[in-house]
Simulated scan of single mutants.
Amino acid sequence: MVESPAEKKSEPVGTRVKWNVEQLKSSYVNFANANSTREEVVMNFGLNASWDRSQPEMEIELAHRIVMSPFAAKRLAELLNKLIAEYESRYGELK
Rank of each mutant, 00 (worst) to 15 (best):
Q55I: 07
L24P: 00
F31Q: 01
M58A: 10
F45H: 01
K18Q: 14
M1R: 08
E78D: 15
V2R: 07
V67D: 06
A6E: 11
P5Y: 03
I60P: 05
G92L: 10
W19Y: 02
A6W: 11
K8C: 04
E61S: 10
E22H: 07
Q55V: 04
W51C: 05
L24W: 13
E3M: 11
M43V: 13
K25Y: 06
I66P: 00
A85P: 02
W19N: 13
P5H: 14
S26D: 12
F31T: 13
V41Y: 00
R75K: 09
N44S: 06
A32D: 15
E40K: 08
G14V: 13
S4R: 07
K74D: 09
I66L: 04
L80P: 08
Q55M: 08
S4K: 10
S10Q: 12
S26C: 10
K18T: 14
L47F: 11
N44V: 07
T15N: 13
I66D: 00
G46M: 02
M68K: 00
A49T: 06
E93N: 11
A49F: 06
Y28W: 07
S89T: 08
V2I: 11
A77F: 10
E57H: 09
S69P: 00
I66V: 03
E40L: 01
S4H: 01
D52E: 14
M43F: 10
S26L: 08
K9D: 05
V67L: 07
A6Q: 11
M58P: 00
V13M: 04
R65I: 05
A49P: 00
Q55K: 11
R53V: 11
G14N: 11
N33W: 09
G92K: 11
M68D: 00
R75A: 02
T15D: 05
S50D: 14
Y87V: 00
N35V: 03
P70S: 09
Y87I: 04
Y28A: 05
Y91N: 09
L80Q: 13
N33A: 15
L83E: 09
M43N: 03
V21R: 15
K74G: 03
V42I: 14
R53E: 05
K25F: 06
N30G: 12
E7R: 08
E93C: 09
E61V: 08
Q23W: 06
L80W: 15
Y87C: 02
A34G: 07
E86Y: 02
S54H: 04
G14C: 04
R90H: 14
V67W: 03
I66K: 02
L94D: 07
S27R: 12
A34S: 02
I84Q: 13
K82A: 04
M1A: 03
S26G: 14
N30C: 06
S4N: 15
M58C: 12
A85K: 04
E11K: 15
K82P: 00
E40I: 02
E78L: 12
L79N: 15
A72R: 14
K95M: 01
H64S: 12
M68L: 13
N35F: 10
K9S: 06
P56R: 02
V67Q: 14
D52Y: 12
G46F: 02
R53Q: 09
M58G: 03
Q23M: 15
L47I: 14
